[in-house]
Amino acid sequence: MLNPERVILMSRLAMFEQRESRRGNASCSFFRSDYVGFKVLTSILSATVVYLIFVAAWILYHLGDLLQNIYVMDILEQGRQFLSWYILFAGAYALIALIVYTVRYNRMRRRMRAYLNGMRRLSRMMQEGKSG
């Protein structure tokens, strides 16, 4: 005999498992610090690549002026400016990544807690079904 309440609960739990396996739920596999730290590191890597692209585009854009002034310009000073802009850019991007991934991790944990509660409820229903 079908128990509609149990079917609905099992359906919701199965949908959760399917969805979370597609998302790669990290809250089961990683501590918050490990997950967020790894994501921030990869974000800094992305920011570094993007910054290098910006610098290359800037050089190409100002190539004429650079070729004319290469012997009179202060290359060290220019390098210091690039470095300070990089630190600002990578720092800001890392901060955004920290906030985004911390919020995401907390949401994943809440969903996982709801899932575990659902599993406990299902287990109780199954036991009641066997004993009743």
Binding site: V7, M10, S11, A14, M15, R19
Partner: peptide, 17 residues
């Protein structure tokens, strides 16, 4: 729209939500 399938002791379930 989500499709899941699972089973218990009595039935196989094919659910479209």
């Amino acid at each position: 729209i989500e499709r899941v399938q699972f089973e218990d002791d009595e039935y196989y379930y094919y659910v479209k939500a």
